[in-house]
Design a protein around this nucleic acid. Structure first.
Lengths: 361, 361
DNA sequence: TTGAAAGCGATACCAT
DNA sequence: ATGGTATCGCTTTCAA
């Protein structure tokens, strides 16, 4: 009930001690006699005292908060990301500020503004310029998530290029496909940039003609449908499309099926991420699994460590896993199970471990 | 470059004025001679001074931040919500703290903890107990989004029950369907509770036997696929399913189609929300459009107003719109367009305006 | 072990 | 129009 006018001073008075002692008790710092501690604790309990965060933050010179900067798009990917990050922060009694840069005019300025209010910042790759990240890095601990920052700024990521190359190679070699196209905008985010690079690299490695320009669309399901329309309109249709992520792949699948195309017979489709739906569509989606949630919580932990000073400024490279299902043309042994996540891929997944994980100048 | 050791005092010294004057200038409050203001401004610019938020907040007794509490699920709905809320907060130079309660043990305590750090709180319906909301309301301005709080706590919402009833009636009357089932967990959130209520009410109004128990699943696409499996396993299949939201409806559609069922011939499906994908699937989804983003930004505005004292503690009831497409059995005039959002529904949408919008004790 | 007092960085009242 | 100063709520030396 009562709450407002409660300060250290007040509690100190009620417990018959000094504010310093109250502070010691409520923080568990310093030496306090058992008897005094009990008295103070009782006063605190009795009146429901909670130390004010502003006063505490001002005196302790830390905000007790970290920021998360992300574009602000829809879908399972970002939700996983946010939850993974947030859950880790909460464990550390740190609150999370968010900033969506998507469709915002001067987001860089806002990010800097935010940096003033937090102890550290996690920035999704591609949301702000490198220059800004560099500036941010001079004022606060920064970690780049799913992308790369300037040298010296730690990043948490997966090897998108290698994974996409492996996936593309599967299509090119194991299925003997030619005429593949890439769906996604390489300028949209570092993830897509790298996946596009891996897609091309696979062609190069096999000394095949380089693929044509990507079908530049966004990362959500509707974008995939849009991409499917574009593909279907072509004079010569590709045999397969490698999509920047699962959501667009699902969109392509839905768009293609809706227009009478059979997958994978008429068109092969692959995704990236391995979101839950990937295993549940018909045919189930061949894709690359990346531990999004783990990436995000890892990022939070790293950021918190750096902010606490106990930092190994190391970048982290997480492993991915090729998940072969039916949409690439591989046989699907059985109908997809409703709980696709738990199930093991039909074909033994090909572990793709990055070479020098964890090293970074 | 330089930044850390810069305080009001320092700027005051550099500009040869008092801290009070610096404060006046940097806040635009009080009277300052043009000449002095210029001098102070120059010092500020020159050294890149930015008033510290903690000091400011402590002195001004406000945090400059609001909190958003939501379950933390995936999908277009929550993304829209977050972005709508955040964009409005940013406009007001207020930062947004987030808290995902989903799958968290003692989230109520964390929400209260958060309340101490912000000027106001927007709570999604169903994320915390009514008791807790009541407690929160005694300490901070609270707005409930998509749900209802205790009396006296403003809420921003749509009339889910009426909208779902209208939709159900369309199925029951215009299509002459019987044996409808509801997909969604009424205990999951107030939204679903109300939609379930509307679904039943429509039956009651027509003096039809009440529908059987709902198929209790979550609100995401995979849950819809799961629901489809359940439905298909039944001895007597329903003629149609009214889904709690579009995402599950899409899941049901995908699951049903994948198992060879034709929609709407064999099974009619409807959703709720009108997310972009709703117009893009085959057949396009009959659903109810609700202005999610607008609801969220409305909530932010309301919260900010209340926090600023300039409050009409009124609850807001937004209108919804029945969107008839093909999945209910109505004829689809043409193939769905790739940019479904912009397109007008095939059948003139039936405006469903709530009766007493905006009134609340 | 405990307390007095000096900040932390900014605001705002009260004189001037 | 400007400056001095108390204050916001808490932490943290420094003495006692």
């Amino acid at each position: 009930m009562s709450n407002s006018r409660l300060t250290v001073r007040e509690i100190a008075r009620l417990a018959g001690v000094s504010v310093a002692t109250v502070s010691r008790v409520s923080n568990g710092t310093g030496q306090v006699s058992e008897e005094t501690r009990r008295r103070v604790l009782r006063a605190i309990e009795e009146h429901g005292y909670r130390p004010d965060h502003l006063g505490r933050a001002l005196a302790a010179r830390r905000h007790g908060a970290v920021g998360l900067v992300f574009p602000g798009l829809s879908g399972p990917y970002f939700s996983e990301l946010i939850q993974g990050f947030e859950s880790e922060a909460v464990k550390a009694k740190t609150s999370v500020h968010i900033l969506c840069t998507h469709l915002r005019a001067d987001s860089d300025a806002e990010v800097i503004e935010m940096a003033h209010r937090v102890d550290g910042l996690a920035v999704l790759g591609g949301t702000v310029s490198h220059d800004t990240i560099e500036e941010l890095a001079t004022m606060r601990p920064i970690v780049v998530l799913a992308g790369d920052g300037p040298a010296g700024v730690p990043a948490v990521r997966v090897d998108n290029a290698a994974a996409t190359a492996a996936l593309t190679r599967h299509l090119l070699v194991d299925h003997g496909l030619r005429r593949l196209e890439f769906v996604g905008d390489p300028n949209g985010s570092p993830d897509v940039t790298e996946r596009w690079a891996g897609f091309r690299q696979a062609h190069r490695d096999l000394e095949l003609p380089l693929p044509r320009a990507p079908i530049r669309v966004g990362l959500q399901q509707p974008d995939g449908v849009f991409a499917a329309d574009q593909v279907l309109r072509r004079a010569i249709r590709p045999q397969g499309v490698v999509c920047a992520n699962d959501e667009t792949a699902l969109g392509v699948l839905i768009g293609a099926s809706g227009r009478g195309l059979r997958v994978p017979e008429d068109l092969v489709i692959t995704g990236f991420d391995d979101i839950p739906m990937a295993a549940l569509v018909t045919p189930p989606l061949t894709t690359v699994r990346q531990p999004v949630r783990e990436l995000a919580s890892q990022t939070a932990r790293l950021l918190l460590q750096v902010a606490a000073g106990s930092a190994d400024h190391t970048s982290l490279l997480h492993p991915t896993e090729l998940v072969i299902r039916g949409s690439c043309g591989c046989p699907t042994s059985t109908a997809p199970t409703p709980t696709g996540r738990r199930r093991t891929p039909q074909i033994a997944p090909q572990r793709h471990e990055p070479s020098g994980a964890g090293d970074h100048p």
